[in-house]
Design a protein around this nucleic acid. Structure first.
Lengths: 216, 216
DNA sequence: GGATAATTTGACCGATTGGTAAACATTACA
DNA sequence: TGTAATGTTTACCAATCGGTCAAATTATCC
């Protein structure tokens, strides 16, 4: 007699490990490309190379798959912001935050699009994460930035909108990739666009945040 | 005997005018919230307050509705960039471009999300518009910016990435609205966030683009 | 007012959706 | 090696999908 579904066993088997990995990889492909509602279990099953019921043996519902995927990716996704160091040199911290975020847009565009799709469609599945862990992390780092501004190390500015602007400019290269490529044309659509973007964004943010020469 | 479908008549009736308007309004609601694949004709019909066959009398397919919607919205959407004036004062042109884009994010968030959804999911329906009219417009304005830089009116920078960064930072407030609200918390989620954003972005871009005091 | 064209709807279609039941196959472990 | 738990598949389900059809209703114009 079979116990209804996977994950009921106390110990995870090797097969469970492998198949869940395989499924989440496929789910990332599909969800990031079509959003939750636009994706189908059949698509994911095909990409994962297994039958639909087999996939549903590991994740009971489409929502469960999405949930597991979000959980797995979210922590990693916030890593660059977490690395933001209050003790470091402001200019260097911001520069390296931009660089890291840009590297993630280049190396993990599917993860970026997964969240973009989710947030764009009203974040029905991650509202709690946004209002909880994300807000707390941003609040903490905003305080760091505010302190830098107060100490005259950078210009006085709204730290939240500064963070938003770094998020949006960097993630743009993952989320709006096809538009960026279309506008730049074939000749500038190689990986060089990320270096150009990095150069421009550092110039913009470092220049834009440099403290006023005359204190006020 | 009925001629198969609407729009076959040479003269558009009053009813056609009204109903098509009504449908596109509903379609904007639904498509912008769920993307093309995630939206259903039934949803749109319900929002539009009419039966599904009636809706399909005016637009033969879901794609036709989407197409009509995109066409109607695209021209308006590019208006701010078109207004970018080569003869104007660079600082003032950039400032007002940011302000205009931010106003559009505030006043027409559905339009912004419509495009965001489309581009995010690979732009399957607007590839031609991106590579054609959009690219041409951006090329033209990039040349203006390049000339300003050459003349020392603004700092030397990549004009394409400058435009991208204005797009991304401003549209962020429409496309990622729920995230912005979640992070800012209830107390800062009123319309005031657009004024704060405007202030910050002007500071960032004007400061970041100010020409080097020492030439070269 | 009546003919004609335009509009609207309920009933329906085949395909696809998320998900299930149960038989079958494989693995782990004593 | 046997057996119980785990893993996989075929066949299927009701609901929903995009879309059609023919009949009924309404507007238009002479």
């Amino acid at each position: 007699m079979t116990i209804p579904r996977a994950a009921k066993t106390l110990r995870r088997t090797r097969i469970q490990e492998e198949k869940e990995e395989q499924i989440l990889e496929a789910a990332l492909d599909v969800f990031s490309a079509s959003g939750f509602r636009g994706s189908t279990i059949d698509q994911i099953a095909e990409v994962a190379g297994m039958s639909k019921p087999n996939l549903l043996y590991y994740f009971r519902t489409k929502e469960a798959m999405h949930r597991a995927l979000i959980d797995r990716v979210l922590y990693t996704w916030l890593e660059p912001l977490r690395a933001f160091d209050a003790e470091g040199n402001p200019e260097e911290e911001i520069r390296s935050y931009i660089r890291r975020k840009l590297e993630m847009a280049r190396d993990f565009p599917r993860e970026s699009r997964l969240f973009a799709n989710e947030v764009l469609q009203g974040a029905p599945h991650i509202e709690d994460e946004l209002k909880g862990p994300l807000k707390e992390l941003v609040d903490e780092k905003a305080e760091v930035i505010r302190a830098w501004a107060k100490a005259g190390k950078i210009v006085k500015c709204d730290p939240y909108h500064l963070i938003f602007s770094i998020w949006s400019t960097t993630q743009h290269y993952a989320d709006f990739d096809v538009q960026v490529r279309a506008v730049l044309g074939q000749e500038h659509s190689g990986d060089g666009r990320f270096e150009d973007a990095a150069r421009f964004l550092e110039q913009l943010f470092i220049g834009g945040l440099r403290p006023d020469p005359i204190g006020t």
